[in-house]
């Protein structure tokens, strides 16, 4: 099994440890991991703001970079960035037959991290150990476009000493929404507060998600409001309790 890593730009720049955990988890399963170094960003920020030309231009580059690689799957530790490639490239390239076909072909091989582990590798127990009581936040693209809902929970259920608890209104968006977070800061922050209220009510000490962007938003608000809740990406949890 050969996997080309697609590391979202904000993971690359802000949370590289998430990418490192992905590599370690995959390698432990015997996956041959490669990282196409020409990659930058999938173009989602431009796309979400309506700058489709700019998104197409960045998207074309993404296609070029990954088409050059040899891999069975592209794996990405973000439901949102996965969706950009698998669902929204065909959307923005709708009227361009060549790119559309290329993006559809590539899109079928892009998998979100937990989806890849459970549905491609057939693994649910990675032998990880993490003490704590956690809630899981499913990013909206992962929930609605990808429909990858159970997989992260199945993986977390096998983590030793980790208790996964439910929380109120867990289907609600965290309020990040890309540039929405800065275009509509009041509403965006109020949405984060709604999640934080539910988080506190759940009694969890740890917040886990498959999307670092949601976590960046929620963590930013948690810290600002004086909460020290532990915030981790799913990959970091699955990589924990292992001595390399």
């Amino acid at each position: 099994m050969r996997v080309a890593l697609f590391v979202p730009c904000y993971v690359d720049q802000i949370n590289p440890e998430v990418g490192v955990s992905v590599v370690r988890v995959l390698r432990r399963l015997g996956v041959d991991v490669t990282y196409p170094e020409g990659q930058t960003c999938c173009g989602q920020p431009a796309f979400n703001s309506g700058f489709f030309d700019e998104a197409r231009s960045v998207g074309r580059r993404f296609l070029d970079v990954f088409e050059r690689e040899r891999f069975d799957y592209i794996v990405c530790p973000s439901g949102s960035c996965t969706t950009m490639v698998s669902h929204y490239y065909p959307f923005i390239f709708k009227d361009l037959p060549d790119e559309r076909e290329r993006s559809e072909t590539l899109g079928q091989r892009v998998r979100e991290f937990s989806d890849f582990l459970v549905n491609v590798m057939g693994v649910k127990d990675l032998g990880a150990r993490l003490e704590g009581r956690a809630v899981f936040h499913t990013g909206c693209h992962q929930r609605r476009e990808l429909g990858v809902l159970e997989e992260p929970r199945e993986l977390l259920a096998s983590v030793d000493e980790l208790e996964l608890v439910g929380w109120e209104n867990e289907e609600l968006c965290c309020g990040f929404g890309g540039t929405f977070a800065v275009k509509m800061p009041d509403v965006s922050t109020a949405m984060a507060d709604e999640k934080i209220k539910a988080l506190q009510k759940s009694g969890a000490d740890t917040l886990i998600s498959g999307d670092s962007s949601c976590l960046m938003h929620l963590k930013g608000r948690l810290r600002r409001t004086g909460h020290d809740t532990r915030v981790l990406h799913l990959a970091q949890v699955l990589d924990s309790g292992k001595a390399g």
């Binding site: 590391v7 993971v11 690359d12 720049q13 802000i14 949370n15 590289p16 440890e17 990418g19 490192v20 590599v23 990282y35 170094e37 540039t179 977070a181 800065v182 275009k183 800061p185 009041d186 922050t189 984060a192 960046m216 938003h217 963590k219 930013g220 608000r221 810290r223 600002r224």
Partner: peptide, 23 residues
């Protein structure tokens, strides 16, 4: 935009080393 973010949320710093450097 940074101000719109940091008005109500902490901004995470860029990592010392990016993933590609670590790789």
């Amino acid at each position: 935009p940074l101000g719109a973010w940091t008005g109500s949320r902490d901004l995470p710093p860029l990592a010392e080393k990016s993933f590609r450097e670590l790789w």
